[in-house]
């Protein structure tokens, strides 16, 4: 009997729920099935389909690094039907997971280079995966700089980790909030991510840039990096088109002939420039 049901999710137990920001939560998930747990492997940048039975599936990246074994984490904002149902789940409850899908960040190719991570708002999760992946293999990389911005101080996610990165001598962390989003106690920058980036002394040589954020942030960040003489092939980002299946069949995530679920979600700026504006 044929039994490989590609639509069948693995069952995962919610080990830990972290409230990150208003309506934003992180789940730590563990496979219930030992065999599935043993066989599971993924790379930084890949994504999955997370589901609540009776509500449906939702697509987000795996936010924990593949270097941390035995669990995966996902971070999501409560917006649609599925994420609202997920947000109501508590520790100990079970959700569905299919994946990993998609391509990945080629971090092996980045060995010996400086890394510049630029993220905005709720787009930090895909980058958190690759940041921790690189930090766990710290000796492989040279300078690591993280620039992260959100609308308000409240909207910054992974606050504990931001603190940890801030304290690490081998990481340069710049955090910023949009003008008006600061609190009296705020010690970081004030301003939009591209503006903050422009003020920094960016060195493009031997540096890989990874940019994840809302479309408007990405749009204004690329020119700053290009002006700082980053090569287009050295600037990475992720696309977030709507998906259902995750493996090139349901037909909705394509940008021209490129399928975000199979050829992405990770693209270089050089690749993006060749794509039609359909994302």
């Amino acid at each position: 009997m044929r039994n490989d049901n590609i639509y069948k999710p693995c069952l995962m137990r919610i080990e830990k729920v972290t409230d990150e920001a208003p309506d934003v939560k992180t789940f730590r998930l563990k496979f219930i099935d030992d065999v599935q747990a043993r066989n599971f492997d993924f790379k930084a940048g890949q994504f999955g389909e997370y589901s609540v039975m009776g509500e449906g599936e939702s697509t987000f990246c795996i936010a924990s690094p593949p270097t941390r074994k035995g669990y995966i984490e996902c971070t999501f904002r409560k917006t649609g039907r599925v994420t609202s149902a997920l947000a109501n789940k508590e520790e100990g409850e079970i959700i569905g997971f299919r994946g990993p899908y998609g391509n990945r960040f080629p971090i092996e190719e980045w060995k010996g280079k400086n890394l510049l991570f630029v993220a905005g708002g709720i787009a930090l999760p895909p980058m958190r995966c690759v940041i921790w992946n690189c930090l766990d293999l710290r000796e492989d990389y040279k300078d690591i700089t993280i620039v992260y911005g959100a609308k308000t101080v409240d909207d910054l996610i992974y606050k504990n980790e931001l603190e940890e990165w801030n304290e690490r001598p081998d990481v340069t962390l710049v955090t910023t909030v949009d003008p008006g989003g600061e609190t009296p106690a705020w010690k970081g920058q004030i301003g939009f991510v591209p503006t903050i980036l422009e003020k920094m002394e960016l060195k493009a040589e031997n540096t890989i840039a990874v940019v994840c954020g809302p479309p408007i942030m990405i749009k204004f960040t690329f020119p700053v990096l290009v002006k700082a003489e980053f090569k287009e092939a050295d600037i990475f980002t992720t696309l977030e088109n709507r998906m259902k299946c995750g493996f090139g069949k349901c037909g909705r995530c394509n940008v021209g002939s490129v399928y975000v679920c199979k050829d992405g979600p990770v693209f270089t700026y050089a690749q993006l420039k060749k794509l039609p504006a359909e994302y």
């Binding site: 039975m53 009776g54 509500e55 449906g56 259902k244 299946c245 069949k249 349901c250 037909g251």
Partner: peptide, 14 residues
């Protein structure tokens, strides 16, 4: 052949 994936039922059965 494009398709959508939907759940029919509720959170306990479907």
């Amino acid at each position: 052949s494009c398709f959508d994936i939907q759940d029919i039922g509720n959170q306990t059965k479907g």
